[in-house]
């Protein structure tokens, strides 16, 4: 659905060569993606031969120890890092093109709001750059609608220093959603929040996902978060960064916070924990 809408939005023909790489239902596909940095003795393989498919409308988590390159992988998908080898397509476009077509919404660990703008103006800030033709009123309206969506409708006129960490992160999610992207790429968005706020934010994210049908790729180091939220979890290992296992989470939606007591949750949680222990063992670069 989002794919069709994205194609309808622009009349430029899609690059067939790139589009054909992706299976029909995959919004994001990465094939043989490697990222190396430095050269000679300092050459370092950050990501090694990554194959990744994210079906449209799915919720996928990338989990792994520090230094496994999960954030780098997300940046590759966002078009912020160019892979050394391999192909990536997002809705049939190269990632940087997809970003320019407003198909990619980014959320980082730091909300990075502009402290001199209120919540609603922060929420429409990226949209105002992406679409300079929009009037101030239209931007406000869109910003307000997105704040309503993330549950911050009443706080539109608050300044960032009047908002809590969780609320700031909600504004940052609203800011990305304002672009109406096909996919939300989130890099440890709740990593700086306390445990209780984290749970509420995860729950809200699920609601937003169910309501908007966006495809979500979430980088996290929290096993709970990965199992609680996603349909599929990719476990990454270090040295070099690679996908060592892909797990489906067959728990039904809507999921409540109480899902952590479900036997299947516990089984998956334990399985992931064992995998993460393995993930610290360096592998042989292929």
């Amino acid at each position: 659905m989002a794919l069709a809408a994205a194609r309808a939005r622009n009349d430029v023909p899609t690059l067939q060569a790139v589009a054909s790489v992706a299976a029909a239902s995959d919004l994001i596909s990465a094939r043989g993606v490697s990222v190396t940095m430095g050269s000679g003795r300092h050459r370092q393989v950050i990501l090694d031969n990554i194959d990744l498919s994210v079906p449209e409308g799915s919720f996928v988590s990338l989990i792994g120890p520090s230094g496994c390159g999960k954030s780098t992988l997300l940046k590759v998908l966002a078009g912020l890092v160019e892979p050394s080898t391999g192909r990536v397509s997002v809705a049939g476009h190269a990632p940087a093109d997809a970003a320019r077509r407003r198909m990619i919404g980014l959320v980082f660990q730091d909300a990075n709001l502009l402290p001199w703008k209120n919540a609603v103006d922060n929420a429409s800030m990226l949209l105002s750059i992406a679409d300079p033709t929009l009037s101030k009123a239209a931007l406000r309206e869109r910003g307000q609608a997105m704040l309503d969506l993330v549950g911050l409708g009443d706080a539109a006129h608050k300044m960032p220093n009047e908002l809590s960490g969780g609320m700031r992160q909600r504004v940052s999610i609203a800011r990305s959603l304002a672009l109406d992207p096909a996919v939300l790429l989130m890099d440890e968005p709740f990593g700086a929040l306390d445990a209780i706020t984290r749970d509420t934010m995860g729950q809200s994210l699920l609601e937003i996902w169910e309501r908007t049908g966006k495809t979500i790729v979430l980088v996290t180091h929290s096993i709970d978060e990965a199992v609680h939220l996603s349909k599929q979890v990719h476990v990454l290992g270090i040295k070099p960064g690679r996908i060592i296992e892909t797990l489906d989470v067959p728990l039904p939606y809507p999921r409540e916070v109480s899902i952590v007591e479900h036997p299947d949750f516990i089984r998956l949680h334990n399985g992931l924990r064992a995998l993460l222990r393995d993930s610290h063992r360096p592998g042989q670069p292929s």
């Binding site: 966002a78 078009g79 912020l80 320019r100 980014l106 980082f108 730091d110 990075n112 750059i129």
Partner: peptide, 14 residues
């Protein structure tokens, strides 16, 4: 200015 904010701006073609 935080790098990720600049990334965010770059991603929408600023």
């Amino acid at each position: 200015v935080d790098r990720s904010l600049v990334s965010l701006m770059n991603s929408v073609g600023a």
